[in-house]
Design a protein around this nucleic acid. Structure first.
Lengths: 259, 259
DNA sequence: CGGCAAATTGAGGAAAGTCAATCATAGTGG
DNA sequence: CCACTATGATTGACTTTCCTCAATTTGCCG
């Protein structure tokens, strides 16, 4: 709850526990359908690829962008994990979301033309960079891309709406774990076992809980045999029970369950 | 916290306390720059007007759309006020936002193609209806409209991000009041005095507080001479103090401040 | 091996929630 | 026209959840 300004200073080597599967994909990103509309045909895909820029990997703690930066690019996570957060006048940090490979970053800056949040790498991570102007220009030519952008923006709205709910610590934690599981699954990783790229403090902040509460809830879940936690590694032992805890709106619906 | 399914059954006659000013505007909507990109020229504006459908006014308690409805339209509030909300598996309602004249509704449904929230009129209200297909089609032809849509979606993301913050009851209430004030001002109404279209219960739910807490906080604010409340009518007596309470990120920035 | 940061665990306190009673207002019907 | 009733708002007393503070413990990296 304090040192959000360190740059670098990695601690844990964060590697996916499980193997990704391949998608129909953007050759540069390797992200597949998550960043490319499924309905786009080959020529359009190659147009999209032309505006995608690979960028160097970021070390843990490095910022992709900061509050106040002029907005020019949006990003797709290639590997690793990012957290986005704001710092209010009182210096308190608020984590707004965690962003896994295939997910977009920077969308909230479009409105004001200035970044209103910070994005920090959690573990070594890399992104694809897209100039926003290129994206809008190409969206004019490729209806599928425009539609995709609308959907992605709408998706983020859905996620944030889901996160807005006033739930207990147990509910929020269950929702969080299931959300991660769903998103890992979508990306071809195991939805049963995964690494938490973020610290307990970040999870706590994101869920509007105290760090200690996160520890306690995880301990309680483990005692109830719902999960197994070992440091960063989490295994979901009883998803059904977790779903019930979460309020069970989490079966068919991929977007619900807080980010 | 219970009877969200009543249709009709108005109670209070909700009238703006103050007079709106005129904007450059869509003739059908009368909404001005809020629903029309400022940069659009006359021919483009008339194209936009062609896809706008005025619809009959809704009575208090009537739903504009419901969870599960197939998504086909987005809406711009013409008059009155709407609340959007979800109901979770346990039957608990969660208010996601209040929507004033000039603001858009239904954006979160784009992603899934199905409405994931309910929109209910608070007091007699009316909307402009836009077929989403028309909007996307026209956005292909009119770059300014596409840009505007991106901005609007991004704006909603900003708003929800701001609402995500973990603040105290006093902070949340101050933010809420200031947000309303800013939005009324933007629309040409007084930012000092306005009517709350929504019940205490709705405010409480939106702010993740108990109804009683909302009452108590408002009473406390009044005792401290920060505001004057009389039923639905609110007058802001000391905006600076409220801003300080809110965390004071609320001067220049129109989008921050919950909702 | 030492030192540091993160995580866990325990004890006590505070903010907000719940339950319950009262008050006020607006709409209803005699 | 006015009493009556229902609904929403307020106020008070008590409870609960989660936070805060503090003390360890654990694991990691030099």
């Amino acid at each position: 709850m304090s040192d959000q300004h360190r740059i670098g200073g990695n601690k844990q080597s964060q590697k996916p526990v499980l193997t990704p599967v391949s998608h129909v994909a953007c050759s540069k990103c390797g992200l597949g359908k998550l960043c490319i509309p499924a309905s786009m045909d080959a020529p359009d895909v190659s147009k999209l690829e032309m505006i995608v820029h690979k960028s160097r990997p970021l070390q843990s703690g490095e910022f992709l962008y900061r509050v106040g930066d002029r907005f020019a690019d949006i990003y797709a996570v290639r590997s690793g994990c990012f957290k986005t957060f704001v710092v209010d006048a009182a210096g308190r940090e608020q984590v707004l979301g965690f962003h896994l490979p295939g997910e977009l970053l920077g969308l909230e800056a479009i409105y004001q033309g200035i970044n209103i949040s910070n994005a920090e790498a959690l573990g070594t991570s890399s992104v694809c960079r897209l100039h926003y102007d290129d994206v809008t220009r190409l969206s004019q030519q490729v209806p599928e891309l425009q539609a995709h952008m609308f959907r992605l923006l709408s998706q983020r709205i859905s996620e944030l709406s889901a996160a807005a709910a006033d739930h207990t610590a147990d509910e929020r934690m269950a929702e969080f774990l299931l959300s991660l599981a769903a998103r890992f699954k979508e990306r071809g990783y195991s939805s049963k076992e995964f690494n938490l790229a973020m610290s307990r403090a970040d999870i706590a902040n994101y869920l509007r809980l105290a760090t200690e509460t996160v520890s306690r809830v995880l301990a309680r879940f483990q005692k109830k045999k719902l999960i197994r936690v070992e440091r960063k590694l989490v295994e979901l032992l009883d998803k059904d029970a977790l779903s019930r805890l979460a309020g069970s709106t989490n079966e068919s619906n991929t977007t619900l369950g807080a980010l």
